[in-house]
Simulated scan of single mutants.
Amino acid sequence: MIHIKNAHVYAPEDKGICDVVIEAGRIIYVGEKCEISGPFNLEIVDLQEKYLCPGFIDQHVHITGGGGEGGPETSTPEIWLSELTKNGVTTVIGCLGTDGVTRSMARLYGKAKALENEGVSSYIYTGAYQIPLPTLTGSVKSDLIFIDKVVGVGEVAISDHRSSGISPEELARIAGEARVGGMIGGKKGKVHLHVGDGKKGLKIIYDAADYADIPLSQFQPTHLNRNRRLMKESFEFGMRGGYCDYTAGEEVYDEDEVTAAEAVYEALKAGVPMDNLTISSDGNGSLPVFDSQKRLVGLGVGSVSALLKSVQAMFFKYKIPLEIALSTVTKNPSTIHGLKGKGEIKEGWDADLVVLNENLEIESVMAKGRWMVRKGVLEVFGTFEKH
């Protein structure tokens, strides 16, 4: 049993100074100061009013690597366990991207299982950029019904020269399968969409929703801060019930690009419901740069460390209340994707926790009741990590 004392709990709502008690990987008490005694092992941790928040949920990570647009040597590597935990990520949703051939759904599932066994919680999307979508069982619907870790479809590319030029009718069929598969499988079945910088923007989503009478809440487009035009389009989408995901990071490489923190700030100012806003890292995905002729001229790699940087910028630079900033990486993605026991500090929920100091720097991280990082030091490593 672990007794955390004097924590300033953001659950992500501000709960003030609380004690939190953990047993068998779950939170069993959140409330006023308490005392515990008995014939059992008890670890007492006094946080001295440091922040305690839910573990971060990164809903867009290329856990098996991504990229490959410049040839096999430009494929990015798989993610290590410690890259997640040292950055506060205790739950991850893995996805395929441009390459759904040399990186398969089978490998994606296997990597997710490996990360789960190493100590964090993991889920995956079925599919990739192009259609026909790669799946595990032969269809999106049956993947959602029968495969435990599949929570949705993604990342399917639209408005991008690397997409399949998907039609509204095709997208509607995918969304319909995801919706029914999610209903039968007890999942949300969201369609997570990679949005490129094409001129059509989000139009295909509206067309698909109208074609099949599917609510916009079935869709979650991402990379919506890649330019200001797309960011502004996202505001209407969010206000009409859709979910808006902005790619984390506070460095911009193009004058028209927008940081995630600014995008969330502008979305809130425009009236988008806070519950409809999330950020994700695109961790271990390639960050290709194309010229006006769509030729590859540069390449970078996404990092899950971007999540915390964007949360910090939301709070310190844009003065967004901490509970709202944290919700974009905790409660909101959990609710959108139906991740039971995740994203909040509540009795009966998983003990996924992050300790932050007054500068919102990570001091300790707990996943499923196990300390992964203690006072800035990694305590748990992946199977093949050197330490």
Rank of each mutant, 00 (worst) to 15 (best):
G271Y: 04
S310M: 04
W80P: 00
K294W: 01
I320A: 11
G285Q: 00
R240G: 14
G65R: 00
D143K: 08
E13D: 08
I28C: 06
S334W: 03
V329Y: 08
L296T: 05
I36Q: 12
G249Q: 14
I279W: 05
G154E: 02
D352N: 10
Q59K: 06
K113N: 15
K309A: 13
D46R: 10
E233N: 06
G271I: 06
E266K: 15
L230M: 07
I93M: 08
E35A: 11
A175G: 01
G198W: 01
E363S: 09
K113E: 15
S334A: 15
G271H: 04
D275W: 12
P134T: 04
P132F: 13
G138D: 15
V373Y: 00
S234R: 07
D14Q: 12
E233F: 12
D210A: 07
Q312W: 05
I4L: 10
G68E: 02
D245M: 14
K15V: 02
M274N: 01
L42W: 12
P273Y: 01
V373E: 02
Y125I: 02
Q48Y: 07
L133Q: 11
Y206L: 13
L296S: 01
D148P: 09
S164C: 00
H3F: 07
S303N: 04
D213F: 06
T278D: 08
A208Y: 00
E83H: 03
V354S: 13
G55T: 01
A351S: 11
F381C: 00
S121I: 01
E255T: 09
G271F: 13
A351F: 05
G16V: 04
A208H: 05
T137F: 04
G97I: 02
V45A: 05
Q218E: 13
L144D: 11
K15P: 04
G16E: 03
